[in-house]
Design a protein around this nucleic acid. Structure first.
Length: 458
RNA sequence: GUGGAUGUAGCUCAGUUGGUUAGAGCGCUAGAUUGUGGUUCUAGAGGUCGCCGGUUCAAAUCCGGUCUUCCACCCCA
């Protein structure tokens, strides 16, 4: 038997203890903030029916869905004609009816519709789970990654938008990441498309102007022209794209531009209301109106939110927006929701690159007892038990191995304290406590040992 | 899905125009030190050169395919 080289699928990763400690630091921080604002956790299955997922993320999203092959004799359903014509979409529908979830928002909408009778609206939920995308991996882009979603569903109030941005601010303040929150509104974008006379090209226009800071205005114009946007409309768009200045100056200009579009004016008003609240609250993060912020997901209808870490060549670390009709496709009309999603894996990469992980987080147990043999173990075990009951993370090395091996092991594991109890200590009813960082050691009674370690565990 | 780069010891990387026994540092194991780790010294183990095939007397080295990782596009957390 030839040994196969072990590996994990492309774009997926193992997480070792040190990585888990850091990841849990992120999850714990985010979860704490979510709870502080009264959001409640739910979980949904890794897989959903394809009918739930398809058509919610645009064509690109459908392509990136991982599909799960049906069980049983799935080939029986396929006729030779479809195979001969290589009708991939048609065949896929026949052999796969489940897929891995692509995000947490669509499964949440499904959940809300399904459990509508048990939910009292507005419903505030959070959800921290992995999602999967069949994308080609790159820096900060994985095929399996964790999203931390918070959503309010069943409330139109703009206070929800404000609250979500407060949550963003709290999370990144706690994680010590300098973040800038970019805001826009689909209604503003729709209004712009309307006033330049290209309402039907809304999609093409937003996709193109989304790339403005990346490829420049020339290429954006080229792309729009190629997609069938008229020269005249592109000319009209230029002053809007290059709108500069402070918010105070931007909004009056925008209101003037959008004066013939009720939708656009409404989006503008909404964004102004949200920003006014934010200004009054005085949040730490910078926030700005970014008219080029579009976001590809099809279901957004109102506010669009995106967060980037400053000074980092990385995609957004948090994103979201308002969706008015998402539950409608599952048969529950008139329920509007708004939510955001923190990308835990990208936040991890930012924290690692900026060296912002607290050291204390990777510690395992506080103290390890050296194993000298049966007699000594018998002496130590009850004390170890009492240390644990006192809330001190304690472990005993399982084998009576050489002292050196046991100390190296403790050292590698980052255990800060060692207890040695051999014949001498047993005779005196004492314990030798060694501080691994300072190299100092002292003999203590059990009572003193517990007291000291308890103090050091704070 | 499109285009480009990459892969040598557990890790980071050398390796000449194709040539005989593929190296270094770190890590690992043992000893110096039988109850003291993280420093030092000494010794040792560890590689079908990503995988499959081709060219050649001869391939880590050249060619083709494939997979991985990375970069750009697309899109996105």
């Amino acid at each position: 038997m030839s040994a196969q080289k072990p590996s994990v699928p492309k774009g997926t990763r193992d997480f070792s203890p040190i990585e888990m400690a850091r990841r849990n630091y992120i999850f714990d921080t985010i979860r704490d903030v979510f709870c502080r604002y009264g959001y409640q956790p739910i979980e949904t299955p890794a897989m959903e029916n394809l009918s739930t997922l398809l058509g919610k993320y645009g064509d690109e999203g459908d392509r990136l869905l991982f599909k799960i092959l049906n069980s049983g004799k799935y080939l029986d359903k396929i006729d030779g004609k479809a195979l001969a014509e290589k009708d991939q979409t048609g065949i896929t529908r026949l052999i796969s009816d489940k897929g891995l979830r692509f995000d947490l928002t669509v499964p949440f909408a499904r959940y809300v519709v399904q459990h509508r009778n048990d939910i009292s609206f507005p419903f505030k939920r959070y959800q921290i789970q992995p999602v999967w995308r069949a994308d080609r991996p790159q820096k900060g882009r994985y095929r399996e990654f964790f999203q931390c979603d918070v959503d309010v569903i069943g409330s139109d109030s703009l206070l929800n938008e404000v609250e979500l941005i407060q949550i963003i601010d709290d999370v990144f303040t706690k994680l010590e990441i300098n973040a800038v929150v970019k805001l826009n509104n689909r209604k503003i974008l729709a209004g712009i498309a309307e006033v330049i006379g290209e309402a039907e090209n809304f999609g093409h226009i937003t996709v193109a102007i989304d790339k403005l800071d990346k490829i420049g205005i020339e290429k954006v114009n080229e792309e729009m022209l190629a997609k069938g946007v008229s020269r005249d409309a592109i000319d009209k768009l230029q002053p809007i794209l290059t709108l500069e200045g402070k918010l105070k100056e931007k909004f009056p200009k925008l209101l003037e531009i959008l004066k013939d579009s009720p939708t656009g004016l409404e989006g503008c008003k909404e964004t102004m209301t949200v920003m006014r609240h934010l200004k009054d609250l005085g949040i730490n993060a910078k926030f700005e109106l970014d008219l080029t912020l579009a976001r590809g997901l099809d279901y957004y209808t109102g506010a669009i939110i995106e967060v980037k870490a400053t000074n980092m060549a990385m995609g957004s670390i948090c994103g979201g927006g308002r969706y008015d009709d998402l539950t409608g496709v599952f048969g529950l009309e008139g329920i509007s929701g708004v939510g955001i999603s923190f990308g835990a894996d990208r936040i991890y990469d930012v924290l690692l690159e900026q060296d912002r992980f607290p050291d204390a987080y990777h510690a395992s147990s506080k103290v390890m007892f050296v194993n000298f043999g049966d007699e000594e173990v018998k002496y130590c075990l009850p004390v170890i038990n009492r240390l644990r009951k006192a809330g001190i993370n304690t472990e005993l090395y399982p084998d009576a191995a050489k002292m050196k091996k046991q100390l190296v092991w403790a050292n590698n594991k980052g255990i800060p304290f060692i207890v040695m109890a051999g014949t001498e200590e047993i005779k005196n009813k004492k314990f030798m406590l060694k501080d691994m960082n300072k190299g100092e050691q002292e003999q203590l009674t059990e009572e003193e040992l517990i007291k000291k370690l308890k103090r050091l565990s704070q």
